[in-house]
């Protein structure tokens, strides 16, 4: 085994080890602390967990791509809310009144297009102005959220279409619709990042932008495509989730960007870009959902959950750093 291989394997596998550790902990602790008689590691419960992971998870796949590319997108939560409004509201528009359930694909298409356009707009601004993605999407996070409130003030936007609810609540081969979307998106982004030239160029740009430019890679268009993809995925996440719930509050999706980034970082993606993969991100998403569910299972409230996740995020990154330090001869910082 080459030197460094152990630490690398640990770093790559750490998230799965962490998940197993959680499963054991919550199963054992649940025996003593839980109010319900049901075991934590129940098959039904695990399937539900996968379904509940979908909204954050679908966006996290796009965030992995954007972060590997050396950027970040803070506007995904607001884009999520806009896409939800577009979908629910468009179904009530008079011009579609005669279509019956035929309005569903149109509403979906409109919502997904809205997300893609908003994402591409972020990318275009980052490309053409050269302003850091953090700042650009911080701005668009506020701006897009403003649009949400302009639309319907503080009031929720609602429309229940029972065909849509049936579709969202359907199960296929034992997995819920949302779970299928999460798995498909994970596979698609995995394929994009590892198998395509666009994906490999995204890694190169995030790793050493100057080298990429020198090699003749057109950095701007690649970045814009990736922003468009994450916008699309934020909208897809909204479309899947609100097909079932049918009502969106103007504050929905807030802090989603932070949960998504937490999952991506837990999954081993470098915040500076150039390294990371969606399999790790998938682990990160599951780990967070497991933690929320598990702590709930043993009777902790939401505020405790947030505190614990925050601590774990820092602990994991510290551990990662320790694993990567080469030894005592290392230069002190």
């Amino acid at each position: 085994m080459k030197s460094g291989a152990v630490s690398k394997a640990l770093a790559n596998g750490a998230i799965w080890g962490f998940i197993i550790l959680q499963l054991i902990f919550f199963s054992v602790a649940g025996e003593y602390l839980s109010l319900s008689d049901k075991a934590f590691m129940d098959w039904e419960n695990m399937l539900l967990l996968l379904k509940q992971s979908a909204p954050i998870g679908i966006i996290a796949m796009g965030m992995t791509l954007v972060m590997v590319n050396g950027n970040i997108d803070l506007s995904v939560g607001a884009t999520f809310a806009i896409a939800a409004i577009v979908m629910l509201d468009s179904m009530t528009w008079p011009i579609f009144a005669g279509l019956g359930d035929g309005v569903i694909p149109i509403a979906w298409l409109l919502a997904l297009t809205a997300g893609t356009v908003l994402g591409a707009l972020n990318g275009l601004i980052v490309w053409k102005t050269g302003v850091d993605a953090f700042i650009v999407t911080l701005g668009s996070m506020l701006g897009y959220r403003g649009i949400v409130f302009m639309f319907n003030g503080e009031n929720p936007t609602s429309h229940l279409n029972w065909t849509l609810v049936d579709f969202a609540e359907a199960e296929f081969l034992g997995l819920a619709t949302a779970s299928w979307f999460l798995l498909l998106v994970t596979f698609a982004i995995w394929f994009l990042m590892t198998k395509t030239v666009h994906g490999r160029n995204a890694y190169a740009i995030g790793d050493n932008r100057e080298a990429a430019v020198n090699a003749g890679i057109r950095v701007g268009p690649h970045m814009m495509i990736n922003f468009a993809i994450i916008g699309f995925l934020a909208a897809l996440s909204a479309v899947v989730f609100y097909s079932e719930s049918g009502s969106v509050n103007p504050n929905d999706g807030q802090l989603y960007e932070l949960w998504v980034i937490t999952a991506v970082v837990l999954g081993g993606t470098k915040i500076t870009g150039g390294a990371g993969n969606v399999i790790g991100t998938f682990g990160g998403v599951i780990a967070i959902q497991l933690l929320r569910k598990g702590l709930g299972h043993i009777g902790a409230d939401t505020s405790t959950v947030n505190l614990v996740i925050g601590l774990i995020l820092i602990a994991v990154l510290f551990l990662d750093r320790q694993l990567n330090v080469k030894g005592k001869e290392e230069l002190k910082v």
């Binding site: 160029n201 890694y203 790793d207 100057e210 080298a211």
Partner: peptide, 15 residues
């Protein structure tokens, strides 16, 4: 002018 996280082959044929 290399991307450290990528493989030798990818760096050689970068772009």
């Amino acid at each position: 002018s290399l991307a450290a996280e990528l493989s030798v082959a990818e760096n050689i044929y970068l772009g």
